[in-house]
Design a protein around this nucleic acid. Structure first.
Lengths: 197, 197
DNA sequence: CATCATTGTTGTCATCGTCTACTTTGAGGT
DNA sequence: ACCTCAAAGTAGACGATGACAACAATGATG
């Protein structure tokens, strides 16, 4: 007796998200279709509509989950007892590794277009990620390890340096492994500047 | 007598590209359809196929044109007689302004997926853009204005800082005007580092 | 002026996202 | 134990899209 799948899936929402992330990783966002997703999951083509109002809603959910994973990884890798340079280098490595392993997802996370409601949640995700770096900068400034200047701006610049390198790897301009390999150097130049001392 | 348009358009390819870029700027890449483009241009839905094998081929052409404009702007703004800091600041301003005015296009330019053939041309576009910064760094290093280190890597880091900020504005995290306003500061910190001297 | 590659056109196809109407299911109240 | 009913799934339809094929107009070249 082919015990055909029960009418109700159980946790279709999670299954869809999981399948979507795999497709995203393997074939890119362009070839991610709700119908194909439904097929893979063994439900009808309209079933995803019960859990995601839109295709964008699904992508937003994916991005949100991405922010959560990234923030967790960063928070887990932050050791406040370390001096500035090694502390920041460790975080940079985590960020660049995440970028290398989740290139398409990261693009989604930083994408402009979101569902009206999700924009705020997205901002929260950004804040949580940025928060880690904020603390590092603030701590360092308190210890006099960093120049006196608007800390928010310093965080932004630090983030920009990382995000820029990540963007190069995502775009295929830079090999991910190579990017990881130059992390030490990147943080060194960020802290010491390009000018001779 | 409605002198109906001649059978041959004259320069459909250029017209399509122009129309495509306007749509890209106004409504984003997601709502850019070949058929809609054909309608706007007053040709049949299959006509674009004569000039662009693919939708991606059109997007690639758009990106290529973008690289050309960006490189021109940078090359035009580079004044080799200036000392490092103002020279680099001027270039940074041009880059950030381009990013602000061509957000969607820039995303296309840095996109991963390109038509097999176009990838090399794309790389050439990157090289030309990077070349400007390469020269600045090399000149400065020759004059001792910059630390002794692999110049290619220094260029990469400089580009990363800029690209990161640009990415933030493209993603809507940072206001374009605000980004432009902090250009001086950005270059200052890039050159002098975050550590106190 | 005949030829014929270019550049258009029309028609068709599979796929997609979304909507609506219908069906199955199972949890909660009585 | 039964009823009710909202949640979650299904089937079918619609309009739009990208791609392709077969055909038609055009105009440059010989």
């Amino acid at each position: 007796m082919s015990r055909s799948r029960p009418y109700h899936h159980g946790d279709l929402r999670a299954a869809l998200l999981e399948s979507a992330e795999r497709t995203l990783r393997e074939k890119g966002v362009a070839s991610l279709s709700l119908r194909e997703l439904a097929r893979e999951t063994g439900v009808s083509h309209a079933a995803p509509g019960r859990h995601f109002k839109d295709k964008r809603a699904l992508l937003d959910a994916l991005a949100l989950a991405g922010y959560d994973r990234l923030a967790r990884a960063l928070e887990g890798a932050d050791d406040p007892s370390l001096p500035l340079q090694p502390r920041l280098t460790a975080l940079a490595r985590v960020y660049l590794a995440f970028a290398a392993e989740n290139a398409e997802l990261l693009a989604l996370m930083y994408a402009r277009k979101h569902e009206p409601g999700a924009a705020e949640q997205m901002a929260a995700g950004v804040d949580r990620t940025v928060g880690v770096f904020d603390r590092v900068i603030a701590d360092a400034q308190r210890r006099g390890e960093i120049v006196e200047a608007d800390p928010e701006r310093l965080t932004l610049f630090t983030g920009a340096a990382l995000h820029g390198i990540a963007g190069f790897t995502v775009g295929g301009i830079l090999d991910p492994a190579e990017a990881l390999g130059m992390t030490d150097d990147l943080i060194h130049h960020l802290l010491h500047g390009l000018r001779p001392r």
